[in-house]
Design a protein around this nucleic acid. Structure first.
Lengths: 274, 274
DNA sequence: CGTAACCTTGAGGGCCGTCAAAAAATGTGG
DNA sequence: CCACATTTTTTGACGGCCCTCAAGGTTACG
């Protein structure tokens, strides 16, 4: 295992040159951001273990795992770096190891957040599998550590390793279902109802406490929920009669049953697990 | 091949008893609909060939195909029959052989169309794979012929047949991407823009003719596009300045380039193929 | 401590939904 | 094929939801 790690180290640094300092490379735009340099690292043992824990990688053979990670590398990105851009070919499968990433899309001068990706999971799996252009762009929401696996290697191993292929099906089916829930929410609920249900879900994730913090800025929350920041601000006021108090990013749910009565949460829209 | 067909015939009729006339079966409610009886048929040779053509079934071994279709059967449904109901366990993988099916969802007294399924493709693949409850309901839009494969058999063969598993990944990735496009459309476009782009797509499907017919009723189109029928009626008027004339279900696009200028179609939202 | 984000608040207006009723289209039984 | 009932579509009036623009307040960060 140690030797693998060392082998990779060399290859990773080759990749650094290719990917970060070459003129025409995918990531050459990164250095725009305040002159912050991206640290590119070997994928060390603990990271190997982290990645291996990913559901889609856990069951595959060691040999195929090695094939998959041979040309892979890990990189640290500062906040607000655009990792991928919609419309471009999907050169890499990205795996978020730490931090968080915003998936968004733009059209005709407008922009909308579509999802947030947290560790440890993948970006743009579907695009990689279909060898199709990205449908969404991605940018870091905070300092993030991200593994990049060449899409071609993913497809090669996908064709060779049945456990990997099956794991990907499960992951994709999960992703599909979560997007369907998103559409249902957009088409069936008003913005006030979406906010109310979001707060209920968030409270659940925060351990059910009556007081908890929003886990990202309101401007983004507005976009995720499909509304403007101004409207979100008013929507919070609109939930006061239903037992919600807001102070900065701190939310207090004084009366959960009242909020539930208004929000009418539904497992077929709000459950993340199934 | 003939012998296969005959063997299945007997099994199908056993299934008929189990599924259509038993008190507690999934489909016993079907006969509610105006006393119309569902015709349940053997899956004859031509239908075998049709199903086999389905991308997700084309590559699998004959033996696994037999396993998959052993307990499967084919049924004719009249218009407006609810085939599946959201929240119920996914007992069958449905394959639309002819006709068309509306996928929709309801919450809190509201209802929205989410997609239309046309031959030859599957419903609820993700639910079947994950052995999870349906997220959407489905009803026939017209007289339809539908094959039903027990979900358990799908999962069994999925575990045994690698070609099948891979084909399902491709199909799921495709479905995922199409749902993402749907979300982008909802979040980034106004209803007028959604209608304009829908007309451009529809014109393409109709062979590019300047005059073509809508392929389903306006009430449903409104729901698919995320608006009310009344608003759709006004939206059509709103597109007149952009070169669109409407007469009943007949659409005339007098000035495609003007419409495109307004609609700004984008392959990352409007392309169905990629 | 100052700059630059972000958040809030107000005013105004456009988009879009609801309700109601008339017109048109569709389906049904004789 | 016609007459009738039903459903769909259209139109009008109205109101609420939600966006835009602008300004002031707050927070975060160098």
């Amino acid at each position: 295992m140690d030797r693998q790690g060392s082998n990779h180290a060399l290859i990773f640094f080759n990749q650094v040159v290719d990917l970060c300092y070459d003129g025409g490379s995918m990531y050459d735009g990164v250095n725009r951001y305040d002159g912050v340099s991206m640290r590119v690292d070997v994928m060390d043992d603990s990271e190997f273990r982290d990645i291996r824990k990913l559901e889609i990688l856990a069951q595959m053979t060691d040999e195929n795992f090695r094939k998959l990670t041979r040309r892979a590398y890990v990189q640290n990105f500062p906040v607000r770096v655009e990792l991928i851009t919609e419309g471009e070919p999907s050169d890499f499968l990205h795996i978020v190891l730490s931090g968080s990433v915003d998936l968004f899309s733009a059209w005709n001068g407008r922009e909308a957040s579509l999802a947030t990706v947290r560790p440890i999971s993948t970006l743009v799996l579907a695009a990689t599998i279909r060898d199709a252009p990205y449908l969404m762009s991605a940018r870091t929401l905070e300092k993030s550590r991200i593994a990049l696996i060449p899409s071609k290697d993913v497809r090669t191993v996908f064709d060779a390793d049945n456990a990997f292929a099956r794991a990907i099906v499960a992951e994709l089916a999960q992703c599909y279902r979560s997007v369907v829930k998103n559409i249902k929410e957009l088409k069936l609920r008003t913005s006030l109802e979406r906010l109310a249900n979001y707060l209920l879900r968030q409270q659940g994730r925060a351990g059910g406490e009556a007081v908890f913090d929003l886990d990202f800025e309101k401007r983004r929350l507005a976009s995720v929920l499909g509304m403007t920041p101004e409207h979100l601000s008013r929507a919070f006021k609109g939930l006061q009669p239903h037992g919600v108090t807001v102070n900065g990013t701190r939310i207090t749910i004084d009366n959960r049953s009242a909020l539930e009565k208004f929000a009418r949460p539904n497992p077929l829209i709000d459950d993340f697990s199934s």
